[in-house]
């Protein structure tokens, strides 16, 4: 085994070699994610219960504010499905950046494809997301009269696509936030604006009251088609083909751009830690 530095990208000369190396180290990704989950479970009193409590509390807070205090959205199924899907993507921004910044010792000392760290975070958060979907049904089946139908098979399309989207988002944020730590401060605010721009706390019918230009702007938000496809899967909403096409396009584009940005930067990463 001979390796020479520098090479064009940090870890491997070609993209497919990089991906092969990632695949070779899949056990590491799995242990890293599981280790983080175990450590978290072990250090809290309620442990495993937080998998249910977290989404429950998240859903409760938003329903309390936007369903009861400022009743902009009383449809709890609509609200919670949106919140859980949104949260899964938005947390990959801070999580992606932290997975690099918080592991600086590891990065400085050991050579491995750096993308492993955001991927492990993504895996961890995917478990959380799946748990939140269980919570969603626990609430909406009794309270909103929603019964999951065969449309739930759309999850098999929506989830892999969103994973690609989130990976791109996590990788791009890490790429930008490692040299510019300021960005970690901005993330919570960007997330909040993104939330208000997404069809979660306001009903889709609200769009009809704004001009077509505005409507177009709102629809440019990648969360728009993503949440729409999820609502088809989870709640049986009719599927608009345009949403499906837009979701595929957004997820692939963000995934490819984010990962490419990350890999190109990888060789310089240690200099900023």
């Amino acid at each position: 085994m001979t390796t020479t530095t520098p090479s064009p990208v940090y870890y491997a000369r070609r993209f497919n070699e990089y991906m092969a190396e990632l695949w070779r180290r899949r056990d590491f990704v799995w242990f890293l994610a599981r280790g983080n989950i175990k450590a978290r479970n072990a250090s809290t009193v309620l442990g495993l219960a937080w998998w249910v409590l977290n989404p429950l509390l998240l859903g409760f807070v938003y329903f309390f504010i936007f369903g009861l205090i400022f009743p902009t959205q009383r449809d709890i199924a609509y609200l919670l499905s949106g919140i859980f899907v949104f949260h899964y993507s938005s947390q990959s921004m801070s999580g992606g950046a932290n997975s690099i910044i918080g592991n600086s010792k590891l990065l400085v000392n050991i050579r491995f494809p750096r993308l492993i760290l955001p991927i492990a975070f993504l895996l961890e958060s995917t478990f959380g997301f799946l748990a939140s979907l269980v919570v969603l049904y626990l609430i909406v089946i009794p309270f909103a009269d929603v019964i999951p139908g065969p449309s739930i098979l759309w999850l098999l399309v929506a989830l892999p696509l969103q994973i690609v989207f989130n990976l791109g988002l996590a990788a791009a944020t890490a790429r930008l936030a490692v040299p510019f730590r300021d960005i970690t401060n901005l993330i919570p605010y960007l997330t909040r604006i993104w939330l208000y721009m997404s069809p979660i706390i306001w009903p889709l019918s609200m769009l009809e009251s704004v001009s077509e230009t505005f409507q177009g702007l709102f629809r440019l938000n990648p969360m728009f088609p993503i949440i729409a496809v999820y609502r088809t899967a989870l709640l049986g909403y009719p599927l608009a083909q345009a949403d499906l096409v837009a979701m595929v396009a957004w997820c692939l584009a963000i995934g490819v751009i984010g990962v490419a940005m990350f890999i190109k930067f990888e060789g310089r990463m240690v200099r900023y830690l």
């Binding site: 001979t2 390796t3 020479t4 530095t5 520098p6 940090y10 990065l107 400085v108 000392n109 050991i110 050579r111 060789g267 310089r268 240690v270 200099r271």
Partner: peptide, 12 residues
């Protein structure tokens, strides 16, 4: 350890 890429030169 090849975690830091040199500006010039190489390591084999």
């Amino acid at each position: 350890a090849r975690t830091l890429r040199p500006d010039e030169g190489r390591v084999v």
